[in-house]
């Protein structure tokens, strides 16, 4: 049994990110973290590998920056790490990304389950998760809030999914690709032994040639990054003799704004 999860190094949720005068995205010299949504997929991969008495592998696609996320993942308890990189390829393009990811899953050849976090905060999308499932021809189960049963010997999984209006219980055959939500588990912190092991790990880097695949051309291109326009806000602090007067005044303002 083999469970694979993907991660990336991204700025932390509390880190300020901006576009500098050269049009480049920067977050200063603040260290990156694993993509915040991946805390849950990494934890779930560790749990499922143990449950299935199998192994766990974490993969990152892109430049060396992502080694930090891979090492953090190993420190948490993921057994193997891999990085896929193609120097000239725009791995932010989801078709290219998913072609590399599918190549790696096929090369590993024994994968039962791929687990993603809900999305990647840097590219701000989840499209690569669905495109990997599609390229593999595997069932995709998004927004999983609970794995109710996973029988790796029988090749079956039953999960609870969170939809926009309610919940769904779904049974599917393995292999499958799932994306998991916050709340599915309590992500562990790396322990001392894990950190030491991860620090010593040599992370193999595979290219498209190593995977034996031809990369498709990138279908999309980032033309430019820019800072969101500053909100021109003058804050009006609502004053009044008592709370009722303040509330009445606020209602007047909201009626004037035509937002009620």
């Amino acid at each position: 049994m083999h469970v694979v999860t993907f991660t990336r190094s991204t700025p932390d949720t509390a880190t300020r990110v901006w576009v500098n005068d050269n049009g480049e995205v920067t977050w200063g010299d603040v260290a990156t973290v694993v993509n915040p949504w991946d805390e849950y997929s990494l934890e779930e991969a560790i749990v499922q590998a143990k449950h299935g008495k199998g192994e766990s592998t974490v993969i990152a696609i892109g430049p060396e920056l992502h080694n930090d996320a891979l090492k953090h993942s190993m420190a948490m308890g993921i057994q193997n790490a891999l990085r896929l990189d193609e120097a000239d390829a725009d791995t932010n393009d989801s078709l290219l990304w998913s072609a590399l990811a599918a190549g790696a899953i096929r090369k590993l050849d024994d994968v039962d389950l791929v687990i993603f976090g809900k999305e990647s905060v840097d590219v701000a999308t989840d499209q690569h998760t669905y495109q990997l499932a599609r390229r593999l021809g595997w069932t995709m189960l998004s927004y999983v809030s609970q794995i109710i049963e996973a029988d790796y010997a029988a090749g079956a999984i039953k999960v609870e999914r969170v939809l926009e209006r309610g919940k769904q219980i779904v049974s599917a055959r393995l292999p499958a690709v799932i994306s998991v939500m916050k709340g599915i588990n309590e992500p562990r912190y790396p322990n001392f032994l894990g950190i030491r092991k991860a620090a010593k790990a040599q992370i193999p880097v595979w290219s498209a040639a190593d995977l034996g695949i031809d990369l498709p051309p990138a279908a999309t291109a980032a033309r430019r990054y820019f800072n969101p326009p500053a909100r021109e806000i003058s804050t009006e602090m609502i004053a009044g003799d008592n709370v009722e007067a303040k509330a009445a005044k606020l209602v007047d303002r909201l009626l004037e704004e035509k937002v009620l």
Binding site: V17, V25, D122, A124, A221, R223, Y225, F226, N227, P228
Partner: peptide, 16 residues
């Protein structure tokens, strides 16, 4: 579209 969780914006073009 937003990138980096909406902290910056980007323009993306498609060529297919």
């Amino acid at each position: 579209r937003p990138a980096y969780a909406g902290k910056v914006l980007m323009e993306m073009s498609s060529h297919t």
